[in-house]
């Protein structure tokens, strides 16, 4: 099979002496939402961050193994992590808009990567990204207002718009709804489902209901191991591993 977007083999991650990710193999498909679930500290966020080399910014972190996106080894010394992160966008747990206007927040990535030839190009990218993030109607009249003035849910959608604006192929989301209320969560989840048309989305979540609602594939992590990976329906109705069953039925984690 070659239509996997991301393929990881034998991935080990160490924080100093701490072995955080143990021998993880996973194949992530394009135009699919893949959820990573598991108890706190199980390594799901760490593994997510290896996919766009955000772990490079942590000095004591060491990654081993083979991770390929579109068949290209992303840990190859020839690969520029900066280019990689443009291709693999990321949305964080807490909404973190820059202290700039809504427009400048979205235009940040395109400006850095020179994606727009002129101002009207840039306007178009900003509008398109905000529309995709379902924020355009709320924000179109106040593009010059600071992004930090939006509500929490709007801020998170702004961060999603910001990530989409650089035209990534993969979108990584690290518990994107954990700081949001149920209504904002529902909006973001709806958005994730739409994003699946164009991107491969990987989402880390603490909420099993959320994983069940938004994802097609689910991976269960426990103590740094990938315990089980498969169709979301199957994981939640008929898990193979007893640990997965304990977790989803609420006995551990």
């Amino acid at each position: 099979m070659t239509d996997y977007k991301i393929s990881a083999k034998g991935v080990q991650v160490y924080y100093g002496d701490n072995h955080a990710i143990k021998d993880v193999d996973v194949q992530i498909e394009d135009k699919t939402v893949t959820a990573f679930i598991g108890p706190s500290g199980c390594g799901k966020s760490t593994f997510l961050r290896t996919l766009n080399r955000m772990n490079d910014t942590i000095d004591i972190c060491r990654v081993e193994g083979d991770i390929r996106i579109d068949g290209e080894d992303i840990y190859d010394p020839a690969v520029d992590p900066v280019q990689l992160r443009a291709k693999v966008g990321m949305v964080f747990q807490k909404p973190n808009p820059f202290p700039k206007s809504i427009y400048d927040n979205v235009a940040y990535g395109p400006k850095i990567h020179g994606l727009a030839r002129n101002k009207s190009d840039l306007d178009e990218i900003v509008e398109k990204s905000l529309r995709k993030a379902a924020l355009w109607n709320e924000a179109k009249d106040r593009l010059d207002a600071p992004g930090t003035g939006l509500s929490g849910g709007q801020q998170q959608r702004l961060c999603i718009a910001r990530a989409i604006a650089t035209a990534p192929e993969v979108l990584l989301m690290d518990e994107p709804c954990s700081a949001l209320d149920p209504i904002a969560t529902a909006q973001v989840e709806e958005l994730i489902d739409e994003l699946r048309q164009s991107y491969s989305v990987v989402i880390v979540t603490h909420s099993m209901q959320q994983a069940a609602r938004v994802s097609q594939k689910t991976a269960f992590f426990h103590l740094g191991n990938l315990v089980e990976y498969g169709e979301t329906d199957k994981i939640f109705t008929n898990p193979e591993d007893p640990r997965t069953e304990s977790y989803i039925s609420g006995r551990i984690g």
């Binding site: 900066v82 990689l84 990321m90 940040y108 850095i112 910001r162």
Partner: peptide, 15 residues
């Protein structure tokens, strides 16, 4: 300045 600001920018592929 919160680390989240830096992460946000680096995550978008900024140097």
């Amino acid at each position: 300045v919160p680390q989240a600001m830096r992460d946000g920018s680096l995550g978008l592929g900024a140097t």
